[in-house]
């Protein structure tokens, strides 16, 4: 017998189920008075640096139907490319921007909506810069383990073309599933990011 490695096994995932909102956005689902506000609802303070943007989209199942019971979290760098996290070692991030947001998909339309800022670029492990991106994490009934993906910005063509992470997508035809088109209207700058769980345009999901 060889010696044991003494590693613990990660606790296995289970689906968040249909009632994930009770735990994670209780005010949104009508459980008032337990928490003053749902965590992750507001990401951007009035003094935050950077371009204000709105990110909306839907999570579509294999039949093209939007999920109306999903919960999405996003995590991103600030306008200077720094994360508001104690393990960020490159410098202090903007204290007026949390970098983390949590929103349910709408119970009628299936749409999610984040008010955030456009992130700066952050380095890859070899020091090359990644293109600006927002990390997405999706949980819902029927999803056994949370899905990680990334949203990139359509107006960052040059940065996207040299992003070392996008370069890892083997089938280039799938890269557009990660890129959100930009629009500018009376409500400001908006990006639309639909996430497809299955089908011809299935979004690229990451094992990070």
């Amino acid at each position: 017998m060889v010696q044991k490695l003494d590693m613990l096994k990660e606790t296995p995932s289970q689906t968040a189920g249909p009632y994930v909102h009770i735990g994670l956005t209780p005010n949104w689902c009508g459980i008032d008075g337990v928490y003053p506000e749902d965590l992750g609802r507001v990401m951007v303070g009035p003094q935050a640096e950077g371009e204000r943007i709105t990110v909306t989209g839907r999570v579509l199942d294999g039949s093209g139907t939007p999920l109306k019971d999903a919960l999405i979290e996003i995590w991103q760098a600030d306008a200077a490319g720094l994360h508001n996290s104690p393990v960020e070692r490159r410098g202090a991030a903007d204290p007026h921007f949390s970098g983390w947001g949590r929103q349910p998909t709408d119970g009628v339309t299936g749409e999610f909506r984040f008010e955030t800022i456009k992130p700066g670029r952050v380095p890859y492990k070899d020091g090359r810069l990644q293109a600006p991106h927002i990390t997405f994490w999706i949980v819902a009934r029927g999803i056994n383990i949370g899905l990680h993906t990334r949203m990139y910005f359509a107006d960052e063509e040059a940065a996207n073309a040299e992003c070392p992470v996008l370069a890892r997508v083997e089938h280039k035809v799938r890269v557009p599933t990660l890129i959100a088109p930009r629009s500018e209207g009376k409500d400001g700058v908006a990006y639309t990011f639909d996430i497809r769980l299955q089908g011809e345009k299935e979004t690229v999901f990451f094992d990070v």
Partner: peptide, 24 residues
Amino acid sequence: TSVLRSPQHALLSMEGTVSEMTGP
């Protein structure tokens, strides 16, 4: 419910970058 909500493609494996190694 997992049948229509499960990605069919293999996940893209990647060593985490600072984007994933930090957190709120």
